[in-house]
């Protein structure tokens, strides 16, 4: 059984650059861009704890588990 992988997306159009996801992601998946909005920089580190999804006040972040394919 391989490591579970997750697809993390940020809707930049509704992100208000509050910095909560950047501060609370335990795996430091997020960084910020020139507008201080969240960017998914290292998605492969995501463990799927969904802390970002729960704490994003604007519901910009979605975490979806990637379906494992036969060839991995």
């Amino acid at each position: 059984m391989g490591k579970k992988r997750f697809n993390v997306t940020v809707d930049r159009t509704i992100c208000k650059a509050c910095g909560i996801c950047v501060a609370f992601c335990p795996m430091s998946v997020f960084t910020t861009d020139h507008d201080d909005k969240a960017v998914v920089s290292v998605p492969e580190r995501c463990t799927g704890c969904r802390q970002c999804e729960l704490l994003c006040p604007d519901f910009c972040i979605t975490v979806v588990q990637v379906e494992e394919t036969a060839d991995g």
Partner: peptide
């Protein structure tokens, strides 16, 4: 009605999500 008018980082959005 989205995005809501609450300020950046406001806790109200988190409570609505919960």
């Amino acid at each position: 009605k989205m995005p809501h008018i609450w300020c950046a980082g406001c806790g109200n959005g988190i409570i609505m999500g919960a």
